[in-house]
Amino acid sequence: MVILDPESNIPLYMQLRTQIIESIVRGNLSKGDTLPSVRGLAGDLGINMHTVNKSYHELEAKGIIEIVPKKGAVIIADTEKGPSKKQREDITEELRPAVAEALVHGMKEEDLHQLISEIILIVKEV
């Protein structure tokens, strides 16, 4: 299930990317599953193909899906296996500004840990 909000500040392609990742985390999609074709999903959503294409390419760059000719976008992310060194670096890079923002507002470290635990629960349970 994908719900994109056109009035959000987050661009559509990022919303789509995040929701596909969350579907995998929740187990709605698992390793080996194929995502709909770019044309198919763009048609279902009624959005531009470039938007879907951009999401798929980002997921591919992150090592979450693999775009196999003739077969489509296959999920290769394994929720059991830990991230690679490169993936860990990427996550650090993306998390850093948010952590910095938390610190600049004087957030305590335990509070930050608490917040992450809450987010994990939200992602897994929705």
Binding site: M1, I3, L4, D5, P6, I20, S23, P36, L45, I47
Partner: peptide, 11 residues
């Protein structure tokens, strides 16, 4: 609230 919606499993 108007949103774009798709179900990845429908196909």
């Amino acid at each position: 609230k108007q949103v774009y919606y798709a179900d990845l499993a429908t196909r």
